[in-house]
Nucleic acid binder design. Structure first.
Lengths: 232, 232
DNA sequence: CATAGACGAATCCTATAGGAATGGTCTCCT
DNA sequence: AGGAGACCATTCCTATAGGATTCGTCTATG
C-alpha cells in the first residue's frame, strides 16, 4: 500500500503538495472503517510510515488528529492502539446520545431548510436505496456512507456549528457500531422507510414533526440492534 | 517564556520524560484562555518553538490537537491562526447547543449519582463562591475554572462517554464566550444561586427536576449575557 | 502615475539521524 | 528445572537540515 512514492513526488508535479498528512489521515481512516485494522491492534508510527512510504512526522500528525475522534487511543509512551470493540453498553450509550442530539438537529434544520439542502437529502436517501448490500465490508460501505451523509447533512443544515461539532464528536463512532459482532445490514428496508419519513417530515416544514420522526428512527435502530445482537 | 531548556533536560532528571508535547499543549491553552493570544493572530510553529525552547515537532503535534477544540484554525498552507472572536450569533448557537446537551447530562447524572460525585460537585460550588472576581483575566480565572469544573463533572457523572464527548466538543469554547466584548463577571451572585439549585435538584434524586434546573440555569445565563452585551 | 514582474524574507512541510525506554528472549546460576 | 539478570531488537520521541511555497516590497516600464 503506497500513496505516492518519493520518486513520483520528485518527478513531475508535486502530486498536490502538502496534503501528505491529510492523505495519511484518510488512509488510516479507511483502514479503520473497513476493519483492516482490528480493534486492539497496535498502530506503529514507524511501521505505518514505511508502509505508506512517508516519514514518521505526517503519520504522527494524522494520529494526533485521529485520537480526538476516539478511533485510536494513545497510551502515553507505548504508542497508539485501535480502540476496543463496542460492547452492548457502549452501543446503548451511543444511542442515548444520538437521541439527545439528532432530534434537535432535525428540528433546527427544519426551520431553515433550503431547497438545495432538501435536494441533497433526497439524493442521500436515493443513494441509500440503490447502494449494494453484500456481506463484506467493501460491499455495504456505500450504504453506510449514504447513511452517515444523511445524518451529517441534517447536522450541517441545523445552522448551529456547535450542534455539528457535538454530532461530529460521536460521528466517527457511528459507523463502527456495525462491527460489534460482525453482523451485516439486515434492516435496510425498514431503515430506508424511516429515513424517508424523516425526509417527509423535514419537507413538511413542521419542526416538531421532524424531531419526532428522527427520534422515532433512532429508537427503532436501537431496538433492532438489540434484537439482532449476538447472544453471548 | 521557557518551559525547560535543553540544558535543564540534559542535566539531571529527564523532567518527566515525553510529556514535552503535553506541556506545549497546556502552555498554548493557557495563552488562549488568558487572552494573551488575541483572536485572529497567527500562531507560528517555528516562532512558538523558539519561544518555548523546543523543536517544531512537539509544537506541531500540540497544534494538531488544539485544532479539534476549535480554539485555533488551520489554513491549509498558511499555518495556524487563533479562532475569531465570538459574535452574538455564535453565542446564541452555543447556548442552544448547551440547552440540548446539558439538561440530558443532568438527568442521567441524577440517576446514578454517587456520594463521591456529589461531594465533588459541592466542592466545585464552594470554590465558585470563594473565588475572587476581579476585572482582570487572571483574577476571575479561578471562577471560570470552578464553573467549568461543575458542568464537566456532571457530564462525567452521566456515565455516558458520548455525552461527555459531545460536551467536550463545545467545552473549550464555553470559556471563551466571556471575551466577546471584554465584559467581566457581573452575574456571579445569580449564577451561584442557580448552581446551588442544580446541586439541590441532583441531590433530591429526581431526574426530571435536575434536568429542569439545568435548563433553567442555561436559559438565564443566555438572558443575562444578551442584556449585558455591548450595544454595537 | 499606475501596474506588472521579480527579488527576498519568512514560513511551512518533510526527511533523516540520534537518544532513551520498553518488551521479549536467551543464558547463566542456584 | 526454575528463576533472575542481561542483551538485543523494536519503537517512540525530539532535534536538525533542506526543499518548496507564499507574501510583501521594490523596481522598471508603459
Amino acid at each position: 500500500m503506497k500513496l505516492a512514492s518519493s520518486r513520483d513526488r520528485a518527478a513531475g508535479r508535486p502530486v498536490s503538495r502538502q496534503v501528505l498528512a491529510d492523505h495519511v489521515y484518510e488512509e488510516l481512516l479507511a483502514s479503520l472503517m473497513d476493519g483492516r485494522l482490528e480493534p486492539g491492534a497496535a498502530v506503529s508510527i514507524d511501521g505505518t510510515a514505511r508502509e505508506l512510504d512517508v516519514s514518521p512526522t505526517p503519520v504522527r500528525e494524522a494520529l494526533a488528529r485521529l485520537e480526538h475522534t476516539g478511533m485510536v487511543r494513545r497510551v502515553a509512551l507505548k504508542g497508539y492502539r485501535v480502540a476496543p470493540v463496542f460492547t452492548q453498553e457502549d452501543f446503548a450509550e451511543l444511542m442515548e446520545a444520538r437521541l439527545a442530539i439528532e432530534p434537535v438537529n432535525a428540528r433546527l434544520a427544519c426551520s431553515r431548510l433550503t431547497p438545495d439542502g432538501l435536494a441533497e437529502l433526497q439524493e442521500a436517501v436515493k443513494d441509500l436505496e440503490t447502494a449494494p448490500r453484500g456481506p463484506s465490508f467493501v460491499e455495504f460501505r456505500e450504504y453506510l456512507d449514504a447513511d452517515e451523509r444523511f445524518h451529517k447533512l441534517i447536522a450541517e443544515q441545523s445552522g448551529n456549528q456547535f450542534m455539528l461539532a457535538a454530532y461530529a464528536a460521536l460521528g466517527g463512532q457511528v459507523q463502527r457500531f456495525r462491527l460489534f459482532g460482525g453482523v451485516g445490514i439486515t434492516d435496510a428496508e425498514q431503515a430506508i422507510a424511516e429515513h424517508r419519513s424523516v425526509l417527509e417530515a423535514l419537507a413538511s416544514g413542521d419542526p416538531e414533526r421532524a424531531a419526532a420522526a428522527m427520534a422515532d428512527h433512532v429508537q427503532k435502530v436501537r431496538a433492532r440492534a438489540i434484537a439482532d445482537a449476538p447472544a453471548d
